[in-house]
Design a protein around this nucleic acid. Structure first.
Lengths: 140, 140
DNA sequence: ATATCAGTTTGTCATATGTCGAATTGACGC
DNA sequence: GCGTCAATTCGACATATGACAAACTGATAT
């Protein structure tokens, strides 16, 4: 259907959403991690994730207070997996995507109990003391 | 570049433009043929075609008063040909696309001197007398 | 040079979209 | 039950976008 194609195509035709997809290629992430990397409001990220999920590009699970999103591994419609393949083959050396990955590494070095409370501001404090893990302590 | 990806993705993420791409898979067309099939204002079609061309998805040539567009056969950027391949594999049995192709067959049965002057209205008059060819009489 | 024609550009309008702040919802701890 | 936290939904705003009409541009015929 033309409408489905449009829905999926529009989903990847936004830079913020494309950045999310490239982040998730590395594996499932908690919303708060995506928020910290992209430095966008949680409402914005939540809206983007919902749109990607509606387009059949992502899957979601909840664990306690946290929501995790990952790249869809099923065929939810005729086009999602094709666009995911195209996205995977794209932007391989893009500086924005590469920068996001570096930021994600720093995000992952911060205990999420801290990240969830103080957001991206914690990234500049490498001397922050370690705390108990929260949402990131639960692999898929 | 993320910006280029966005430009190309946005170009195919619109139904009218996707219909144009599917039409052009059958070969080069004059603007007036596309106008007749899509039943959109010439200004609208012209805007869409310009956007597709900017995205590296189409090429254009002029011949007299007429402008012809065809699917790009060169790599104008990193993504255009990838999206063209995806588009070619998509909407193969879509009813809107199929209907456009049927309409195009009827458009092609009308001499373009007539079509260019009277537009889509000529499609309902199968008894129209043949006239000299105009823009369609010039194959690539 | 003038008129006609086809396509393009400009201007306008209604609608869509990305973003953020506020409000809401659901999970958790006490 | 209450307070806290993370994510989601809602509302508002600025900007973008698809559509059309009008104006413009370039090609052609006379």
């Amino acid at each position: 259907m033309l409408e489905t194609f449009e829905t999926v195509a529009k989903a990847v035709a936004d830079p913020s959403r494309m950045r999310i997809l490239k982040l998730l290629e590395g594996g499932e992430l908690c919303v708060c991690q995506i928020v910290a990397v992209l430095d966008l409001a949680p409402a914005t990220v939540s809206r983007h994730l919902a749109l990607l999920k509606t387009a059949g590009l992502l899957q979601q699970r909840r664990s306690g207070k946290w929501a995790y999103y990952r790249i869809a591994d099923k065929e939810f419609n005729d086009y999602a997996q094709r666009f995911l393949a195209l996205a995977r083959a794209s932007l391989v050396e893009d500086p924005t995507v590469a920068g996001d990955r570096r930021t994600l590494a720093r995000v992952n070095a911060v205990p999420l109990a801290v990240l969830c409370q103080h957001g991206r501001a914690t990234l500049g404090r490498d001397d922050e003391a370690a705390e108990a893990n929260a949402c990131r302590g639960e692999p898929a």
